[in-house]
């Protein structure tokens, strides 16, 4: 389905249907955590979530119409932001806690056992409180998450793409998701002026998510280099995509 033929309402409905399932860690190590056991839990969970994230992206109307090269680049760029915004949404009703999964709920202070992670936990908690303050609605969250994916390219995608139509399609898709978010906010019944404020407030939060993701990527890379945690499978590929691009 080409996104331009979908109404904002239909677009949001497909986003609801595209939502990935909540992932469980399953074999959670006994508390207290060590640096290695916490990093192992977090990376195991991330690897599981990544598989569902790809399924989610494919269900966003128009995403699979982009060329494969663009699909790969977008997902490689934004995966940690998507994981983080999902974490924020799950944690929104639980001040001071990070709900990585129903069986992996961490208090802020538990971040002390992994070198350098407390700073990232605090960023995540701060962004989550801001979303709580704004009373982020589920449909708004779904639009923001799709927006992160579609807006994640830092370079002109066509540079290496074999399909020049793909970047035109991507721009259409970004307009469609913007329309969807504007529609969701308008439906809330806020006065017009407050609607623009809300839109701006929500979009401004995305730069905080990007910042936390950059810090998180740096941290995961250093944990891997110091051999604190082995990184494998899909997570390794996704981490390498960032490492290679930075050099």
């Amino acid at each position: 389905i080409f996104p331009s033929v979908l109404s904002p309402e239909q677009f949001v409905t497909t986003l609801i249907e595209a939502e990935p399932p909540n992932v469980l860690l399953m074999n959670r190590p006994n508390k207290p955590f060590t640096e290695a056991s916490m990093m192992m839990s977090l990376t195991k969970l991330a690897d599981k979530e990544l598989v569902h994230m790809i399924g989610w992206a494919k269900k966003i109307p128009g995403f699979v119409e982009l060329c494969l090269y663009d699909q790969v680049r977008l997902l490689e760029s934004c995966w940690l932001e998507i994981l983080m915004v999902g974490l924020m949404w799950r944690s929104i009703e639980h001040p001071g806690k990070l709900i990585f999964a129903a069986d992996l709920i961490l208090d802020r202070d538990e971040g002390k056992c992994v070198e350098g992670i407390l700073e990232i936990f605090d960023m995540l908690l701060a962004a989550t409180s801001r979303l709580r303050e704004l009373k982020l609605q589920h449909k708004e969250y779904l639009c923001l998450k799709a927006m992160i994916l579609l807006n994640s390219n830092m370079f002109p995608l066509t540079m290496g793409s074999d399909d020049p139509d793909s970047s035109v399609k991507l721009r259409h898709l970004l307009n469609a998701i913007t329309d969807a978010l504007v529609w969701v906010i308008a439906k809330s019944g806020l006065p017009y002026r407050q609607q623009s404020n809300r839109l701006a407030n929500l979009l401004m939060l995305l730069s905080h998510v990007r910042h936390a993701s950059n810090k998180g990527m740096e941290h995961l890379l250093s944990m891997r280099c110091k051999n604190v945690v082995p990184v494998y499978d899909l997570l390794l590929e996704m981490l390498n995509a960032h490492t290679l691009r930075d050099h």
């Binding site: 598989v51 790809i54 399924g55 494919k58 494969l68 699909q71 790969v72 997902l75 490689e76 499978d233 899909l234 590929e237 996704m238 390498n240 995509a241």
Partner: peptide, 13 residues
Amino acid sequence: SHKLVQLLATTAE
């Protein structure tokens, strides 16, 4: 990125 491409290419979920 082998696994990512593989997962994107599979049509069945």
